[in-house]
């Protein structure tokens, strides 16, 4: 069995073999430049020849259109060679930007941490599309209008996931409202919307003016929306 535990992890002073998930479809191979390359369900996520060079080429090709961005949303982590290449490029150009990586497979992220350690960027791994759009940090990040960097092997491996992420549309019903706003029945607003079915559209309850003082917030938001449209026009 010991031979099945190829990785060694440390905890305190005790060394013990890192247990490999027997059902795991993730394998690690090493490139000619001696860098770890993940292979998941037979799909190799980076070049086995020179993953760094490959990542630098990927970033170089698509960078011009993203030059003015102050935030980057990266689709797929792999083992992060393309993220490091992006960081290197930004540094060389003197651009300060935030990076958020979306990785659908949590196992890849764990293995990445084991092999490479945490990088100077944020990673959200293993979350469903619905969970992502309920995550405040993700929403805040999207408000920076980030440039999107696709890691082609990861994107192709999870094409439905990433396409779903890009085409997601909010439902605007009470269930979603309750979840995003973290309302429970003890709050005034949570209690007030209890009488409606979860799929009721949020504007349906707004027109009943039953959410008391919070109604003014809805009025305010509609007015802000109008001023933004006006200033854009």
């Amino acid at each position: 069995m010991v031979n099945d535990w190829p990785l060694i992890a440390t905890e305190g002073f005790l060394m013990y073999p890192y247990p490999q998930n027997e059902n795991s479809t993730l394998q690690i191979k090493y490139s000619k430049t001696n860098l770890p390359v993940p292979i998941i369900r037979g799909v190799q996520l980076h070049s086995l020849y020179d993953p760094v060079k490959e990542a630098e080429n990927l970033i170089e090709v698509g960078f011009e259109t993203l030059r003015n961005k102050k935030a980057f949303l990266v689709f797929g982590l792999g083992f992060g060679f393309h993220v490091s290449a992006l960081l290197k490029k930004l540094q060389a150009e003197g651009i300060q930007a935030d990076i958020l990586v979306i990785e659908p497979e949590e196992e890849i992220y764990k293995k990445y941490l084991d092999h490479c350690g945490p990088g100077p960027f944020k990673v959200v791994a293993g979350k469903s599309i619905g969970e992502l759009y309920q995550d405040q940090e993700f929403i805040d990040f999207l408000c920076y209008r980030p440039g999107i960097v696709k890691h082609p092997p990861s994107f192709n491996l999870h094409v439905q996931y990433f396409k779903g992420l890009l085409s997601y549309r909010a439902k605007n019903n009470l269930e979603e409202f309750r979840t995003i706003c973290g309302l429970n029945s003890e709050t005034e607003l949570g209690n007030l919307i209890n009488d409606f079915t979860p799929d009721t559209h949020i504007f349906e309850i707004a027109k009943y003016e039953i959410i008391e003082n919070d109604y003014f917030l809805i009025g305010m938001l509609n007015a802000i929306g109008a001023t933004v449209k006006e200033s854009e026009a």
């Binding site: 405040q136 929403i139 997601y168 909010a170 979603e176 949020i202 938001l221 802000i224």
Partner: peptide, 24 residues
């Protein structure tokens, strides 16, 4: 932050709840 609210209020992936929460 009107700019942020303006983005959230454009709809699409953003729920009205996001802008409501941000404003509150």
């Amino acid at each position: 932050d009107r700019e942020k609210l303006g983005i959230l209020l454009k709809g699409g992936p953003f729920s009205f709840a996001h802008s409501f929460k941000e404003l509150k």
